[in-house]
Design a binder for these strands. Structure first.
Lengths: 146, 146
DNA sequence: CCTTGACCCTTTAGCGGCTACAGGGTGTTC
DNA sequence: GAACACCCTGTAGCCGCTAAAGGGTCAAGG
């Protein structure tokens, strides 16, 4: 199959496929006489694997490592667990900070309803207050250290 | 104050301060005879404002716009609301997908405990199964369309 | 006076993971 | 033979920094 077909089949953009090849994630395919890339089932599977890992937001370096395990089936599985655990820890940490952020923004948002000028805007006041190190709706813990 | 002192006072890295200046977020300060940047209270306040907005994960373009409102206090506050609402929507969307991701990874993680080879690893099997478009622990909805 | 070391300067390049050109070749269809 | 979809390479841009190279400045200590 040509690159466009592979793209269609996997949902991965053509440019991204070429990028994965350049990055060494996807093995270089054969070329037809006209220079077009000719992909087979191996590439389809591998690219689908990559795509799935990316859907789980794994960095490409991790995907690379996982692909290594696929190639070396006798390797120790503990390393895979560790990889997933580390990734999960990163995701959970990020999730936690996102939740805090959502709270902060929601709090900030309550400080203004439309219909007046920026000078009277509660949101802007909050942000400026924060810039002075005062306690603000969005960062309640950040009271001045006086 | 010099750039190091401003950095100390705001918690923003020296390089980042220069980067903000290059990007037009922080106004260019006066220079001393030796070429050192000389900052005043104006810069301190402005940089603190920027830092606070960044703590709320706002893109620099949004921060730029907010700074515009600070400078034009008679502008319509509705635009500020809109900016915050859009940002909040982005954050919530991201939060939702992070939560789904966390679930998917947690499900995936249950498929393996250490102590065997990659060939027997449930995690790897799940990922490969997903590459075949089969239903997997991490993407239960993605069953084959046969 | 000289050296050390902390600070400052500019310019440039790199990170991750794409994405978007520019400028060309190929291959099918009307 | 021309239009069009597809393919190729190479390079540059996105965001928000971060780091490094290669230098200048200045105060304190010997």
């Amino acid at each position: 199959m040509r690159i466009g077909e592979l793209s269609e089949a996997t949902g991965v953009d053509v440019e991204t496929i070429r990028y994965y090849e350049r990055s060494g994630l996807l093995q270089e395919p054969e070329r037809r006489a006209n220079g077009y890339r000719a992909y087979g089932p191996v590439h389809l599977e591998r690219l689908s694997f990559i795509r799935h890992c990316r859907a789980l937001d794994m960095p490409l370096a991790d995907v690379q490592r996982l692909l290594g395990f696929v190639e070396r089936p006798q390797a120790d599985c503990g390393d895979i667990n560790q990889l997933i655990d580390e990734h999960l820890a990163r995701v959970r940490a990020r999730l936690k900070s996102m939740q805090a952020l959502e709270k902060q923004l929601t709090a900030l948002r309550t400080h203004c309803e439309a219909g007046h000028t920026a000078a009277e805007c509660g949101i802007l006041h909050e942000l400026v207050a924060a810039a002075h190190g005062e306690a603000c709706a969005c960062h309640p813990g950040a009271a001045p250290k006086t």
